[in-house]
Amino acid sequence: MIQVKGLEVRYGAVTALQDVSLQVDEGECVAVLGANGAGKTSLLRAISGFAPTAAGEIRFKDESIVGQRPENIVRSGMSHVPEGRGILGQLTVRENLELATAPWRRRGDSIDEDLERVHSLFPKLAERRDQRAISLSGGEAQMLAIGRGLMARPRVMLLDEPSLGLAPVIVTRVFDVLEEVAAQQLALLIVEQNAKQALRVADRVYVLSQGNVVMEGPAAEVRDDPKMAEAYFGV
């Protein structure tokens, strides 16, 4: 579904990613782990078109998407749930969800079924549908961000640190939902610092350190690998 080969991302003189290759297959859940500053956000932003690709190749559904506008990449079936959740606080919860249907909705199409599905995953969002999104708690805002990602009817969903700033019990709930979503034919690419939660739901894992992939493999293997801890907490 997504193939990244030799990706390099630079901001001026700073190299954020170097020679990164990874792959996400249909329906697969892939986690990219790494500490702060490892280049996780740059990776997702490069894939969805927000960060410029200095070198390398990014393919989505067997087509090169390097240089395409982000909104067109999203419209072709890739949701991006950004770091910090990107909630539109002045809009209501429902309006946030509704706008996310832009990729597929044509005049007269009903969004009720999609709303129903998101509401059943996150009942809190149904309760708060007419409130301004700025009034949501951190956990609710993350649920809204994920719900919005689903409203686009994507083939693959990119998630940037869904655990960020949330209480542990909420993090577990968020990842429970992601596990449920992953079981429904939707491919996920999650970048996370919270390795424990990410390893729980992922099929395969990449470990990113200082802009390079230092390790990859099935989640089960990485879970028990001592090198993992080194990649994480070492230099």
Partner: peptide
């Protein structure tokens, strides 16, 4: 209207609006 809401979204945060697939 959808366009009206899109306009408000774009005014609030253009990058997020694009992430939702809106042609800002």
């Amino acid at each position: 209207t959808f366009l009206g809401k899109s306009l408000r979204a774009t005014a609030e945060n253009q990058e997020v609006a694009r992430m939702l697939g809106l042609r800002t």
